[in-house]
């Protein structure tokens, strides 16, 4: 009985120590990426190539999801607002929810599962097939050549994707609210414009998505780089990327929202 308890405590301690160690390791990795970033800009075509893979190829899923989320917001928002006779505020509801929260957060979650997992799998496989080792043996720093361009590509792509998500979402809400249901078009836009502030709402949304972009790509790259060089190791790392970055996005969103909109 006592032995069981001691084993349990030891296990917990081990996990905590491991977790802290990993966190430190991840921070050092992140620092190394930042320090070795000059090549990503000096040879910008390396970054452009990665923007293509993480940004351009995520575009379809982002646009389609944005449109649908906006249409659902239009339907649900109308259902609720019309009970209070304020369906003219539909534009405000759709735009504020998208620009402040749903755009950055949903785009980030989609980005994590579409691009983040791909980054982890790619880096993990490069390590498992000794491509990373081979690069080191060729006197080319894989952090500068492989990791950093992917990082900056993610950081650049994420806010653009989130903005496109929000914009298509607003269009989706417009389609449902104005075109389909027949909310007054002038009121839809004017109420929206009166309520949505550029700096307070739009810019804060953009800042949020930049932070999410940093978090997701850093997690994805670290998981890939740290993955055991086996098929199983890579597949676990990919799953961990999606789970960890989803949690990170939601937690960061809470913290950022508290700071931005409550002025904490």
């Amino acid at each position: 009985m006592l032995e069981r308890a001691i084993t349990g405590i030891r296990g917990t301690g081990h996990r905590v120590v491991n977790g802290v160690w990993r966190l430190g390791y991840a921070s050092r990795f992140f620092l190394a990426v930042l320090l070795h970033s000059s090549m990503s800009f000096r040879r910008f075509h390396l970054t452009i190539k990665e923007i293509y893979f993480s940004g351009v190829l995520s575009l379809i899923i982002i646009l389609v999801s944005g449109l649908f989320v906006g249409m659902v917001l239009g339907l649900q928002g109308y259902e609720t607002l019309q009970k209070y006779g304020s369906e003219s505020a539909l534009g405000t509801l759709v735009a504020l929810s998208l620009v402040r929260e749903l755009g950055p957060v949903l785009a980030a979650l989609l980005f994590a599962s579409r691009a983040g997992s791909a980054i982890t799998a790619e880096i993990g496989l490069m390590k498992a097939t000794e491509q990373i080792s081979a690069m080191e043996m060729m006197a080319v720093d894989p952090i500068a050549r492989v990791v950093a361009p992917r990082f900056w590509a993610g950081v650049i792509s994420m806010p653009l994707l989130a903005a496109m998500f929000s914009a298509t979402g607003v269009f989706g809400g417009y389609l449902i609210g104005v075109v389909l249901i027949g909310v007054d078009e002038g009121q839809f836009w004017s109420q929206m414009q009166a309520a949505v502030d550029f700096r307070q709402d739009v810019m804060n949304g953009v800042i949020k998505s930049c932070v999410f972009g940093v978090a997701i790509t850093a997690i994805a790259l670290f998981e890939g780089y740290d993955a055991p060089p086996t098929a199983e190791g890579v597949s676990h790392a990919t799953t961990r990327t999606v789970v960890t970055s989803a949690l990170a996005v939601l937690a960061l969103d809470f913290i950022l929202t508290a700071f931005m909109f409550r002025g904490l």
Binding site: I51, V56, V99, P159, A163, V202
Partner: peptide, 23 residues
């Protein structure tokens, strides 16, 4: 492709600023 992507993204920010927001 990447150029188009970046332009579209910036256009989206602009739409959010001008059409959706109060800029």
């Amino acid at each position: 492709w990447v150029g188009l992507f970046v332009v579209a993204g910036l256009a989206a920010v602009l739409v959010l600023a001008m059409k959706v927001g109060n800029l």
